[in-house]
Design a protein around this nucleic acid. Structure first.
Lengths: 354, 354
DNA sequence: CTGAAAGCGCTTACAG
DNA sequence: CTGAAAGCGCTTACAG
């Protein structure tokens, strides 16, 4: 292993030209004659030169790094988003520094600071739950290009790309109302999470539109995991008038809830309707296949990347918001309630045990 | 937005000391008196200074970036690995540059080169399927610290952290043999993928140990996705002697296969046993819950990060290999075959339609 | 304890 | 077309 890395000085000496010339051939400058270029390139190959982009960046006052802060990479939605952002900025010659905040506000602040110290050209951040409204003042003041993603945030000076959570929840709830459900629960998600707030608003709206009174006992909150759904389910199943349909905060929760239902002797899609949120690919192959609100994470990621790129190109552009349309995918987990024999008392809405 | 970033020169001027002194307080040097330090720190706060780590790195000839090349971030196993690596190196002050190769060899080579130009302190790479044995010669020659992960690779000069795919497949297959299965298929995965090769070897071994002849018709290959399993399943179900148990390349394939079974009127875990591979959390809540080989992706990620860190610390250390033990998680998708009424011909091993 | 100077690897006017 | 020189923001011996 060579102790010292080969630099343009070595190339200059070896090929008998100046450093400036080497730099120019590196940049494919047009006024370098073919012969000189070839000679220099031959030296580079011979000495095993590798370009030091960091040094160039320092001199040029540029950066090829984009910082990305996600909440939880294990959540497939964020994985999809990350993948899309990475692919999109790579075309423009950028790399992404990926970090996870884990919904921890202190950590998020440290990461923000650290990423800036590392000289990122810009940042896309999915704000942690309960991120204060002034959380990005420092970056804004320093002129760091910024784009928020996935989670809405009150600071209107910042570009944003996300999904139509309100509209998605509205569609999903309407879908359940139209199938005849009047006891519809909303399960999971953390209370201060703005995404949940929007979904909840859509849910309210649809209930109202259907003339269904809102019952707060039908709304639970919890950290959205595969297993949290079990507790949420227990809560609503214990009600005097339990729900006949469950709108879940996300697909993760929904998949957990379907499992919990089985453990309670109930069949999802038959005894009780279940709808998820996010559009995870797995929802197509659960049993029964899970109805979900497709949020197009890939498209959201691409938009976020593009907004950031545009902000880097023109820092004074006025802030833009992109809200990606959601799509309801109705599958058998929310098939219409089974027609019930007259007089079997099903009007109580009580799920049947089996 | 300030045009010019604040530098140590500005701080030096503002606080009336030299640049050297500012640099020393930045590093918390012990021989700086409290008063000087406070004065300087006050100036930094006042002017809104942010440290330029890239410049420091250039001067110091160090780097705080780790490059990570994964095959597919949407695969939860890689997401888990990535998350673990990021968390582990962050403790040491590193960030991770994340990129996806998408199993594309050319792309992998370009990314390798590009990451090195960006001055990473080291690289952990999950080699794309069919990566040639000399793929890392250049990096090795240049003395770039390197750690391979997840996918075994012939180059024995490089550190490696992965899972015991052979042992996992051996356990899983034995488990099926012990449950009385003699027609066990191996479904999915790409032929040249070394991980699949190892799993297949474990499968062979277990068959041999159980005195079961190997039937190549029971082995299929395909790109491992949620939907590829359907075709693989069709192939083996069409055999004169179809399998009674399915060992799937990974959980993704297995979940898709369970769905495909249902579409064929078969019940996984009753008519036919299914086992997955990887230990995705979702396997606990599928219906029926999916037996799987837990590969401990988080542990593998941590080991990979540690091997790389150790290599950075001591470049001449002899190469190490870490193979994480796999764990069989037996669930109802591979429950013992139902006891069958005598004389119902079940000894043919033909799955019953329902 | 603090400052002047050199230098990390590159780029970019500016001469010639 | 090519070279000498300055400089990006920092660190690090070396004097004093």
């Amino acid at each position: 292993m060579d102790k010292r890395r080969i630099t343009i000085n070595d190339i200059a000496e070896h090929s008998g030209v100046s450093r400036s010339t080497v730099s120019l051939v590196l940049q494919g400058h047009p006024r370098i004659p073919q012969a000189t270029g070839d000679k220099v390139r031959r030296s580079m190959a011979e000495l095993g030169y590798t370009y030091n982009r960091a040094a160039a960046n320092l001199r040029r006052q540029t950066s090829q790094a984009i910082g990305l802060i996600v909440n939880d990479l294990r959540n497939p939605f964020f994985a999809e988003l990350t993948s899309a952002i990475q692919a999109r900025v790579e075309n423009e010659g950028y790399f992404v520094y990926l970090v996870e905040s884990g919904e921890d506000l202190d950590r998020q602040e440290r990461l923000l600071q650290s990423l800036v110290e590392h000289g990122v050209a810009g940042l896309v951040v999915c704000p942690a739950t309960a991120t204060p409204g002034d959380a990005f003042d420092r970056q804004l003041a320093a002129g760091i290009p910024l784009c928020l993603a996935v989670r809405p945030h009150p600071d209107q000076r910042i570009d944003y790309a996300g999904s139509d959570n309100y509209g998605g929840a509205l569609m999903a709830t309407r879908h359940l109302v139209e199938a005849g459900h009047r006891r519809i629960a909303f399960l999971g998600g953390q209370q201060e999470n703005p995404v949940r707030v929007d979904r909840l608003a859509g849910y309210f709206s649809a209930l109202q539109g259907g003339g269904i009174p809102f019952d707060p006992a039908l709304v639970t909150d919890s950290r959205p995991t595969l297993h949290s759904g079990a507790d949420d389910l227990k809560t609503v199943l214990a009600l005097a008038q339990p729900p006949t349909a469950l709108l879940c905060y996300n697909d993760y929760v929904a998949i957990g809830v379907m499992h919990a239902l089985r453990c309670n002797g109930l069949v999802p899609g038959e005894d009780i309707a279940v709808v998820g949120f996010d559009g995870m690919p797995e929802t197509a192959v659960t049993f029964p296949p899970l109805s979900t609100v497709e949020l197009h994470g890939q498209a959201v990621g691409e938009r976020a990347a593009e907004l950031l790129l545009a902000r880097i190109a023109d820092p004074s552009r006025s802030p833009a918001r992109h809200v990606e349309q959601a799509t309801l995918i109705a599958r058998s987990s929310s098939a219409p309630q089974r027609t019930t024999a007259p007089g079997d008392g099903d009007r109580t809405g009580l799920p049947k045990r089996r």
